[in-house]
Nucleic acid binder design. Structure first.
Lengths: 195, 195
DNA sequence: TCAGGGTCTGACCGATCGGTCAGGCATGCT
DNA sequence: AGCATGCCTGACCGATCGGTCAGACCCTGA
């Protein structure tokens, strides 16, 4: 065997991304990944210190973009923060669909690990921004529903083109977010439906 | 020790509900549940055939209500189906918050088990109804985002009173769902339909 | 008094998990 | 040739998982 260094390293990373996206982090064993690559489990652990390090390297790009989005949020309030949070998170979720799928349902445990220490705080700030920094329950609930739902949708609709998914999600967020004091800039659709 | 039959049975059920809601189904061992009850793991397996049977008995009430909602959906189309699906699912998710939390992120694996064979089909029909039986990507994406997001929100906001959470979620769904009476001219029968 | 059934348990099982370790193999430098 | 280094592996480890089993304990009815 004995492939070039970076080659095997990358193959393991790609195989892990594929498996994690299907069966989740906990649901995927190092043996599974090794089988998909065609090497031994020991080889996987030769290239990566442990299973968590493998995940961390896999999530690094997405986390970097999330950090950037968090930076853009500082200082903004109200409708401006809502708009930045909405557009930023939709774009992030669409671009990193597979990485998002990996974390499905494993957030609580994974966030305790040191490599992902700050994600919880960042996503809290993101949710707060999407709620227009309002403390009304309706606004906070809507923000959580949208963030969680978008993640799930991106993980599920793997076959829809990026721009189409992004447009549909953005339109949904704009009409679903609770407007802060000033109304959001969206075309007045047929909102008047009595019940 | 030797408590009455139904007592221990119920205690195990309650302990399992508590643990599952926090650490998930896979993340909770029979040992964990036994420890919380104050009995041995063998006792848990004396009262329940296996771990899956314990989960099935725990989810039975919620699944029953889900089936009822599915029945109410048959025959309804368009805006009527949307309204029934929205109100029904919001109510279901709020009432069975803890049960919903158990399934967080473990749907794919759990749905393969025979005890939960039909849930996938039912939730597909529910999502279809919430989308107004439309095949437009925007409508289908919005329906998925809302259903997944509501589940997540109900699992997270454990401290908000039922009626307040229900009202906020219902308001969100009503302004977020794609209206079905769009000016598209498509025959009402050549659409998708379940087999 | 004793038999029998319901309740509960410790000890144990095979499987699988993440992770370690000594050593084999190919290559390249001196 | 001899040696070092990078890549890879089989064998193994302790821990934990879901699940089984023989038997102890207690209550009740004959």
């Amino acid at each position: 065997m004995a492939r070039a260094v970076s080659e095997t390293h990358g193959e393991i990373l790609a195989a892990a991304a594929r498996r994690f996206a299907v069966t989740g982090y906990r649901g995927t064993s190092l043996q599974d990944i090794a089988r998909e690559v065609g090497c031994s489990k020991a080889t996987v652990l030769y290239h990566f210190a442990n299973k968590e390090a493998l995940l961390a390297e896999l999530m690094a790009p997405a986390i970097g973009v999330l950090r950037d989005l968090d930076d853009q949020l500082t200082g903004r309030t109200g409708a401006a923060a809502q708009e930045v949070a909405a557009a930023g998170f939709v774009d992030l979720a669409v671009r990193f669909r597979r990485e998002i799928a990996v974390l499905r349902g494993e957030f609580p445990e994974l966030l305790c690990q040191p490599a992902f220490a700050h994600i919880q705080e960042i996503s809290d700030r993101l949710r707060d921004a999407l709620a227009g920094h309002s403390d009304r329950p309706g606004a906070r609930i809507a923000a959580l529903v949208l963030l969680a739902g978008i993640s799930e949708a991106c993980a599920e609709f793997a076959d829809i083109p990026d721009d189409e998914l992004r447009a549909a999600l953005l339109a949904l967020v704009r009409r679903a977010v609770e407007p802060v004091d000033a109304p959001l800039t969206h075309p007045p659709t047929t909102e008047d439906k009595d019940s």
